[in-house]
Design a protein around this nucleic acid. Structure first.
Lengths: 208, 208
DNA sequence: GCCGGTATGCGTACAACTGCCTACGCGCCG
DNA sequence: CGGCGCGTAGGCAGTTGTACGCATACCGGC
């Protein structure tokens, strides 16, 4: 379970910018990966890779904002720091409304960028820790059979076995068996824990 | 249970701006309340009042950003739309990072403001509906005695009565009584519902 | 002195969990 | 094709957990 090194993805069509940012980041011990276009990033990026994204707004082909939208659609959680030379307020507002971590207008001080990159990396680490736990629970719940899922749903609604048996049109004994399987597969030690697990998953769906 | 009319609070030190915004909002049937300063707004505003806030960034005395910070500290949820004549990107970014609903740079089209005000009002209505339910639950849970609270806590951890009795150093029968009171006062129809209620409250604390 | 919170015992009734055994249909593999 | 694993379904029985009524008791505040 070794953690991959956090990587700062730098997406900018200007080769000089990519290089200077790479050197800047390297000077504070941060690994970076320069990409020349949004498409190139989408090919390279794997959601399991911790890090953050430093993204130029204006680029040929897919723009920075379009890339951000695409990442949102894919459910990516990588923090995005925009940089731009010719930005305006509506552009910044839109980026922030779409969940950008930050939006920097050039020129900015080196230290300013480093500061925000480090905060973005910290946030990514926190997000990942939470997602990891959810992922474990999700896998367990996905190992349930369809019937077990139905029972799980009714369980977390607080329905007694007798009612479940009636609603599913099976005997109470059968419900008890499914119920026991649900508890076993989910790893929940009690109904209370099970409800917590399920609510957690529901929240992820709601916010994602 | 009559709903108060949603009000658009307009906070700007420029009397002319307040007036023109009031008229603009009135023209689309929106009630507004003009205030000349952040302090004035803080005196007037009651969290129970539905609506949104249209706020000038730059004002004598407390600035718009400072007012926003103050509202955040007080846990206010009213959506804030900033307007500014002399804004820059860092200012807009900071406002958005602090949870602003929108940030408009003058000049803007009338329709643009109306549009965003209406979205802000819609968001406020949604937020309020959720908060209302939480508030009802909170009140119920707060009516619990200290001992009942302890039992509630153990219940939502999935502990059986026998274990609770042991941990609390009391008889099982006593735990049963407290447990019954918790279910009665909370209004939960089942342990599952009770866990949901408690988790909801925990989430509110975590995000607030 | 009464009320509310806390604590306890006894007994009954219902709900939930568990073990042990049987059965059918489906898909996979030797 | 027959055996095997698995999801589904069911019966019987026994233990544990939960709900509740009835009765009793101490303490602190109004």
């Amino acid at each position: 379970m070794q953690e991959p090194t956090p990587t700062v993805f730098v997406v900018d069509d200007d080769n000089a910018v990519r290089n200077s940012l790479r050197l800047l980041l390297k000077s504070v011990g941060l690994a970076s990966q320069p990409l020349g276009s949004a498409a190139e990033f989408l090919e390279t990026y794997r959601p399991s890779q911790p890090g953050c994204l430093v993204l130029d707004v204006r680029m040929p082909g897919m723009s920075g904002l379009e890339l951000q939208r695409e990442l949102n659609l894919r459910g990516a959680t990588i923090p995005v720091i925009f940089i731009t030379g010719h930005g305006d307020i509506p552009m910044a507002v839109e980026a922030m409304q779409q969940g950008a971590f930050d939006f920097l207008a050039k020129p900015f001080r080196d230290q300013e960028l480093i500061d925000r990159v480090q905060r973005a990396l910290a946030k990514d680490a926190t997000t990942r820790a939470a997602l990891k736990e959810r992922e474990r629970i999700r896998e367990r719940l996905e190992s349930l059979t369809p019937r077990e899922r139905e029972v799980l749903s009714l369980m977390t609604q607080g329905k007694p076995n007798k009612i479940m048996a009636h609603e599913l049109g099976v005997s109470q004994r059968t419900v008890e068996i499914h119920r026991a399987r649900v508890m076993e597969k989910s790893g929940a030690g009690s109904l209370a824990q099970l409800v917590r697990m399920v609510m957690d998953q529901e929240l992820e769906k709601a916010s994602g």
